[in-house]
Every structure is written in structure tokens, then in C-alpha cells.
């Protein structure tokens, strides 16, 4: 039965689209710039219907925290992986709790529901370190 489920899962995986971000528990470390800490995240886009993902950093109450990346919205072509650095001010590292990526959907010309996916990693213990 387990083998059957695994096989079905693998077959379904080929027909589906996925959004993935790692690590689950990123660590902030001092960056080359004074006053900033950084962490590196990696995203994989297996959603053919999505080309762009938006990054956000939040505190424990989901209030946005200032951060810097190369782009706030990353273009990640289908079936490609992107790694990016996220810089957070030293004064904010104790408040930073979540770092999230959210799919940006295109306007549809069909009457339907669409799935917006968001994955959030967590700075363990809220300290980021």
C-alpha cells in the first residue's frame, strides 16, 4: 500500500506545480556591511503558472520589518532555483521572526479559483541567531 501511495504521489508530482523555500530555520550572521546581518535563502519554482515571488520579513505579529534584497520581487523561471541574500539591520534582528515568499499570480482570463502559495521560514527563538 505504501509503495502504491509513493508511486501515485510521484506520478501526481509530475502533473502538479510546486513552490519551495529553504532553509526552514535560517540563521542570521554578520554581513560585510557594518550594521547589517544577512542570511541566504534558496527558492525553487515548479509552478508553471508563476514567474515571480515576493519576499517579506515579519515580526511575531506579522508586522513587516525593513530588509534589503537584490529585488523584493524575484523572477524565478519555471523549474529553476534562485539563491538570494536578505539583509536585516542589527537593531531589527531580535524582532525578525519570519521570512516569507509569496507567489505573484497573473491575471486570469478564466472563471476559476487560483492558489496563492506562501512559505515562511522562521528565525528560531525570534532572535535570528
Amino acid at each position: 500500500m505504501k509503495i502504491f501511495i509513493i508511486v501515485v504521489s510521484l506520478l501526481l508530482a509530475n502533473a502538479t506545480s510546486a513552490h519551495e523555500m529553504v532553509p526552514t530555520y535560517p540563521k542570521l550572521e554578520p554581513s560585510f556591511m557594518e550594521g547589517l546581518h544577512k542570511t541566504t535563502m534558496t527558492m525553487f519554482n515548479k509552478r508553471a503558472d508563476v514567474d515571480y515571488y515576493e519576499i517579506g520579513v515579519f515580526d511575531a505579529n506579522w508586522i513587516p520589518i525593513p530588509f534589503v534584497t537584490n529585488y523584493t520581487v524575484f523572477k524565478i523561471p519555471y523549474l529553476s532555483t534562485v539563491s538570494f541574500d536578505v539583509f536585516i539591520r542589527d537593531q531589527d534582528i531580535n524582532n525578525a521572526e519570519y521570512i516569507c515568499s509569496r507567489s505573484k499570480l497573473k491575471k486570469s482570463d478564466r472563471t476559476r479559483t487560483s492558489v496563492s502559495s506562501r512559505i515562511c521560514s522562521r528565525f528560531k527563538n525570534g532572535s535570528g541567531e
Binding site: L12, A13, A15, T16, S17, A18, H19, E20, M21, V22, P23, T24, Y25, K46, R47, D49, R110, T111, R112, T113, S114, V115, S117, R118, I119
Partner: peptide
């Protein structure tokens, strides 16, 4: 091996229109 979460869309869904004032999946 690291922990991860993957969100996959098996079906994005479609609205049917059984009458003029209803859209339903």
C-alpha cells in the same frame, strides 16, 4: 537533508455557474 515544506497545486479549481446569481466550485 533539511526540513522543508513544499506547496503544490494539484488543481487550481473552477467555478460553475448553476444559476445567474451563483458561482460555485
Amino acid at each position: 537533508v533539511q526540513s522543508r515544506c513544499i506547496i503544490q497545486t494539484d488543481s487550481s479549481g473552477t467555478f460553475g455557474n448553476p444559476n445567474a446569481y451563483t458561482l460555485t466550485t
